[in-house]
Nucleic acid binder design. Structure first.
Lengths: 290, 290
DNA sequence: TGTTATATGTGAGATAATGTTCAATAGTGC
DNA sequence: GCACTATTGAACATTATCTCACATATAACA
């Protein structure tokens, strides 16, 4: 895989500011760290673990560098170090057939673009001030944010997402879940009770996940989730949407809000020009996380 | 001496079962310990038993290593050693599915008296009629009950237990969680919102877990959980307590209710004479599950 | 262009995982 | 019960890997 993967990835690379070298041929052509990280993450897709020696071999760097890379990625919660390599955790977790009978769709989504989601989550967490009350919505990017926030004791987090609730509670953060019916596969809480519970609170910031956005607004697949999202947004001092760049110009069944209903959009790549113009016209602040 | 133990390394060089199929990757075909553990756990799915020689062969490691692995997994309560292998116990025996990496403490408790809890859960499930609304409380016995009920589509389940909520939702049962603060390590929901939500419903049956009982009533360690239990009991047509026999004559911080506040007690062994007399005097029906 | 940060490589000692041997032990068939 | 074989666990041997410090290379910048 080493050779062919390298070629494909390199050729398909969007931000091609650096010439990718052919591995094995040109010793000096090292990849920038970000690219190497992306490549490492991609290697997990197969079987949920990577070995240091094989990565060092494949990426033409020393074992020490890979070790440092894995440590860095580990700090971001994307993987867990083992002897000789690392296994996937959190967003990447593939779970070897025993634990975790989750919807394959959800896991797949979580692994897909895990690095981007992690960067988005980091940027989002940076906006959170001490002692704030937060609302965390449903979605893979939001779950990544929860992982970053896990352990912070000074926050008060409200969520309609049972995954987030368990994750944060386990980390001893203060977390409140909304009441209502549980909807799979997201494990989101929906219904009038949830909405009523939101309406009786004020939240400093709410972080919303969406399925798509275009010049006319933000979209989500689930009408039930959408109602809760709207309630969260209505109770919030600041509305922040987390969404990776694959969602640009994609629509779904429910329109969550107009562009103007959102204060900040955190994503991993600049939107297409037209969309960016619409966002700016609507007064949406755009944060590009890398 | 076992022939397979001393087989030369690399004899099974091209193990088609290892999905990697990487020429340069499988140096000696060694997996990190965590992955090997996951693979071992996965092997139980077939028949609840694994043999050391077959594992050593399959995973390309020596028998001694497998032995050490099984010991480690045994310490975590996931299996029990036998001659030449191991059998599944605890959470694995009931169902291999578990949505999360559970707390060791919880795993341990689940494994502890797993057989009894399973019998209690079966007896409790037998009481549930078609189309009923149920309340499921916190505790390992209750979680076992939820596992038995999982998949029944005709019920409406309310719970203050996020584990139960996720388990049932995943099985496509209709389940509502109460809103409120999440308390570890039980992942129970507590607080006034939860209590208010219960009070606006009527439940045909509620199943309550307790930490202990004596002639003066039922006890629980957590005052916060106790308040929700009381609310559940007040809204119920029938109150059923699930509790294994190790809880007899044990007390804890909060008294949940007097004996007379409970209709049925399901346990795995007859209570001591004095306690049994008190239960009967209070009109509690006792079901012994085997 | 020189100078500073950052990133990466290298090597030695420490550590952890695994392999090997071997006496003791538990199953198994008679 | 007895012989026989597979399994076991402890001690030791052997790797592979980790960590740490420092050297070197690369990128960033004035």
């Amino acid at each position: 895989m080493a050779g062919s993967d390298t070629r494909t990835l390199g050729a398909r690379r969007q931000d091609a500011e650096i010439d990718a070298a052919e591995p094995g041929q040109e010793r000096g052509g090292r990849l920038p760290a970000a690219l190497r990280h992306a490549r490492i993450i991609a290697s997990f897709e197969k079987n949920g673990f990577v070995s240091i020696t094989s990565l060092a071999d494949e990426l033409n760097v020393s074992g020490m560098t890979i070790r440092r890379d894995l440590d860095a990625l580990g700090k971001r919660g994307l993987l867990e170090r083992t002897h000789g390599g690392a296994v996937a955790t959190g967003p990447l977790a593939i779970t070897g057939a025993s634990f975790d009978i989750e919807e394959p769709a959800f896991e797949q989504r979580m692994r897909l673009r895990a690095l981007e989601k992690s960067a988005i989550a980091e940027a989002a967490a940076a906006l959170v001030g001490p002692g704030e009350s937060l609302g965390l919505d449903v979605g893979t990017s939001i779950l990544a944010l929860a992982q970053v926030l896990a352990g912070r004791r000074d926050l008060r987090v409200f969520t309609n997402n049972l995954r987030v609730g368990m994750l944060l509670a386990e980390a001893n953060s203060t977390v409140y879940v909304l009441g209502g019916q549980v909807r799979v596969p997201e494990f989101s809480v929906i219904g009038p009770q949830a909405i009523a519970a939101v309406e009786s609170h004020y939240l400093d910031k709410v972080f919303i996940g969406v399925s798509g956005l275009d010049a006319h607004g933000f979209y989500d697949y689930s009408p039930e989730d959408t109602e809760v999202k709207r309630a969260l947004m209505a109770s919030a001092g600041e509305v922040i949407v987390l969404c990776d760049s694959s969602k640009f110009n994609r629509r779904a069944l429910s329109r969550v809000a107009l562009l103007s209903g959102v204060g900040t959009l955190i994503t991993d790549n600049a939107p297409p020009a037209e969309l960016q113009a619409a966002l700016e016209a609507a007064g949406v602040k755009i944060i590009i996380a890398r």
